[in-house]
Design a protein around this nucleic acid. Structure first.
Length: 820
DNA sequence: TTAGGGTTAG
């Protein structure tokens, strides 16, 4: 029977794996193996005749059957058959069998050695492949040929290995083989030596597509996008057409150079030459369109693909994730699963980020669970970082911290994610704590991402001294003029009240992008220098920098803080009409704030009513805040009613409404709001102020009685109050929100946390030195007046930053001109 | 018969 099977197998159906596999199974199970061998496999005369049998081996078990037959017949040790078997095992992914088979071969020739080297490389065992090469080179009777070096060059872990192999290549005169030369080019580019690679490339007498592609991709990998494009042009001039590899290489640089026209022209070329069937090309097109935010084009490319691989799915999911369309990203993740495509680590990274965008804690837990079940948390630091980032973006910072603390390995991005997670959730002190922990780790060095995360935390707390020390670090690693780090420094100096330093830094960093402009416009804005902000905006246009939506946020907020209502209106219209930027809720919020601050509460209210978007808490919050300043109970109540609906959990709004009632002595209203907040389980955020002294940040809560210098602080404050009264100060009791007697009201005002911090600063710093205070809530009107007077009495600059803006007190006046 | 050059990331 086996004999018949073998004969039928020989008779024409041999190239199909199924008949052959069934043949093998039957053969294996039959007890007459020897008989078959003597009549079938073993009786064949030429080794070459095995070729079609080898071709049929598409599954490991089939190959094992054939191998068994060949071992029995004594043919497996022959160089041709043994090497072929070893190669087949390597192709089918069984490395250990591949290695065993090679080792069985006696008197290996170059073909066997070459096959062994490439088999190791194919399976990622680079060290072993280089050992193999060394052994081959030391074997006297074997001569390496042009098949030997390309895989070995791929295996080089450093440029020294590569240069050593280059020497052998030159010695054997193989340098000008196109495959070898392309591999050399690729190797040198991998180790950032594109100049050496280019020299080899230029000297080649003949170049095939592989060489051109190796050089172009080498330039791309080393960030030399311009050189890559000029080489592409040279290739075109020589009449060589781009192939699918060229296109997959070049598309990413179109995105890098922000050149969508070039990218679309290449897409046309792809269509014209029928290259869209290549999965690499289509994947690169999806990625290119995604970078430009052209999701419809990306989707069309994906839809038209006949064959899709994991990267195609990952690219589409990432396209939606990076362009903030999480629903679609999740939809395609689901579809991918339906199509039984197994996600990989990169899928999960996009998934985690998309889930964070949905703001659904439940979904995030599912993603975390999915990752835990696959044990990826232990295996991959990138996935862990994505989870840390996911929870942080959702505001569940304690979950981030838990994942972070349990990470087996932390890299610099893990630390950066945790620092920026805290900083972005307003927890600047915690961000600094993590940064300090990071500094103690020897195996991790801060990078650009670290500085852009930690500097805003210092800026937030007004921790100028620590910020300046970090500026020193940044300077030493030559990142001070990096556009993002430089901008963070501008922001730091600006927010710490050092506008002159911010300006000098601003003129040092590259100013081609909006980023530093936005920062400096905003810095002047929060200091009440609205006119300077407007001038900077015009300078920006003059230098040919196109403003973005953040520029207008900074600008409108500057107008709002300086009472420049007409200018604000003008720029708001200009934004859409001249620059085509559609205002989002934050822009509307600025305009409401601008009208309301200026006392035009009715206009602000009418503006809200005319908005095409549903107003959110920030819009109503702006109106409410101004109602408190301008004392409009009726509109304040209306704004609060809306706020209690859109953001019922934010205790701040209840406090402001109760303040408005209290100012007018409407104690019934106060009682009502307080009980409403209590019923909803909300507690007032305690007010606190901080001051940085001797590299330590000292925090004072309102009416703090437990500070070691408590007695001196209150003593100092009472001396100051007496001096202020002699200058005509009378306490403004409208800022006392409790229904108590006047002397108690004065006591309450005196114990406001910013005053405690100021007194502490006066007691512990040299005469006339400036004081920098940060307050977590808004500074009250009475404290504002008091700080002005203290600045005069003590001849000190006092810079107070509160949750709303900046107050720079000097010689009894505030930079905001009492307009805030 | 063994070989080179390509697409996705926190």
């Amino acid at each position: 029977m086996s004999q018949r099977l073998l004969l039928s197998f020989k008779g024409g159906r041999s190239t199909k794996s199924l008949p052959f596999s069934s043949f093998c199974c039957k053969l294996y199970s039959s007890r007459s193996c020897n008989e078959v061998l003597s009549n079938g496999v073993a009786s064949r005369k030429k080794e070459k005749d095995f070729e079609h049998l080898f071709k049929s081996c598409t599954k490991i078990y089939i190959l094992k059957c054939l191998h068994a037959l060949l071992v029995v017949s004594g043919k497996a040790q022959s160089i041709f058959i043994g090497t072929r078997l070893g190669n087949l095992y390597a192709h089918l992914g069984d490395v250990s069998l591949s290695q065993k088979t090679f080792c069985m071969i006696e008197n290996k020739d170059a073909y066997t050695w070459n096959s062994m080297i490439s088999s190791y490389v194919r399976n990622g065992n680079f060290r072993e492949s280089l050992n193999c090469l060394n052994e081959m080179l030391s074997t006297a009777d074997v001569k390496p040929d042009f098949y030997t070096f390309p895989p070995a060059l791929k295996a080089c872990g450093n440029i020294l290995d590569g240069a050593r192999i280059h020497c052998w290549v030159s010695k054997l005169g193989l340098e000008w083989d196109v495959f070898v030369a392309a591999s050399l080019v690729h190797m040198y580019c991998r180790f950032q030596s594109s100049n050496v690679a280019f020299k080899i490339f230029k000297n080649m007498p003949f170049r095939d597509m592989g060489c051109w592609n190796a050089m172009i991709s080498g330039f791309c990998q080393n960030g030399n996008a311009i050189e890559a494009l000029s080489l592409l042009n040279e290739m075109r001039l020589e009449g060589i057409k781009m192939d699918s590899v060229t296109i997959a290489t070049v598309l990413p640089i179109c995105a890098q150079l922000d050149d969508i026209v070039h990218g679309m022209l290449i897409h046309l070329y792809v269509i014209k030459h029928g290259l869209e069937l290549n999965v690499f090309v289509s994947n690169a097109l999806i990625n290119m369109y995604a970078r430009f935010g052209e999701l419809r084009h990306a989707q069309k490319v994906f839809d038209d693909m006949i064959v899709r691989d994991l990267i195609s799915w990952n690219s589409l999911i990432a396209a939606y994730e990076q362009n903030n369309v999480p629903e679609k990203a999740l939809k395609y993740f689901h579809e991918m699963r339906v199509n039984e495509i197994q996600p990989d680590l990169l899928t999960i990274v996009s998934l985690a980020s998309s889930t964070a965008q949905t703001k659904s804690f439940h979904c995030c837990r599912s993603v975390h669970g999915f990752i835990l079940r696959r044990c990826w948390i232990q295996e991959d630091v990138i996935v862990c970082n994505a989870v840390v980032d996911m929870y942080a973006k959702l505001g569940f910072i304690h979950c981030s911290r838990k994942v972070f603390d349990e990470m087996p390995i932390k890299d610099v991005i893990s630390w950066n994610s945790m620092i920026s997670g805290y900083a972005q959730n307003g927890l600047a002190s915690e961000a600094i704590e993590i940064y300090n922990m990071m500094k103690k780790c020897d195996d991790v060095a801060p990078n650009q991402g670290t500085w852009v995360s930690i500097l805003p935390a210092y800026a937030h707390l007004g921790a100028l001294r620590e910020g300046m020390r970090t500026h020193g670090h940044v300077f030493r690693v030559a990142l001070n003029l990096d556009i993002f780090v430089g901008t963070s420094l501008i922001d730091l100096y600006g927010k710490c009240g050092r506008l002159d330093d911010a300006m000098s830094l601003f003129y040092e960093v590259p100013r081609m992008s909006t980023v530093p402009w936005n920062a400096i416009i905003s810095c002047h804005g929060i200091h009440g220098n609205g006119r300077v902000s407007l001038k900077l905006f015009n300078d920006m246009l003059g230098e040919g920098v196109k403003p973005d939506h953040v520029t207008f946020l900074s600008l409108l907020s500057a107008c709002s803080h300086s009472g420049l209502v007409d200018e604000g209106k003008r720029y708001f219209h200009m934004m859409e009409q001249e620059f085509g930027i559609k205002p989002v809720l934050k822009h509307y919020g600025c305009i409401v704030d601008m009208f309301a601050r200026a006392g035009r509460l009715e206009t602000a209210y009418r503006f809200i009513k005319s908005m095409p978007l549903q107003p959110d808490a920030s819009v109503w919050g702006a109106l409410l805040g101004a109602c408190r300043i301008h004392g409009n109970v009726e509109l304040g109540k209306l704004a609060s009613d809306n706020l209690f609906e859109v953001d019922p959990e934010n205790v701040g709004y209840y406090v402001v409404l109760s303040n408005i009632y209290a100012n007018y002595g409407k104690w019934e209203g106060v009682k009502e709001v307080r009980s409403l907040a209590r019923d909803r389980g909300l507690k007032k955020t305690p007010g606190w102020s901080s001051i940085e002294l001797n590299n330590k940040i000292e925090v004072f809560y309102t009416a703090n009685q437990s500070h070691p210098q408590c007695y001196e602080i209150y003593e100092e404050l009472s001396i100051l109050t007496a001096k202020m009264k002699s200058l005509g100060y009378t306490p403004d009791y409208t800022f006392v929100l409790q229904d108590v007697e006047d002397d108690e009201k004065e006591q309450i005002l005196t114990s406001h946390s910013e005053r405690l911090a100021i007194a502490y600063g006066i007691l512990n710093t040299p005469h006339r030195s400036p004081l920098r205070i940060y307050k977590n809530l808004r500074v009250c009107g009475d404290c504002h007046n008091v700080t002005k007077l203290i600045s005069k009495i003590t001849e000190r600059e006092i810079i107070v930053r509160d949750s709303n803006r900046f107050h720079h007190f000097k010689d009894g006046v505030c930079s905001c001109g009492d307009y805030w």
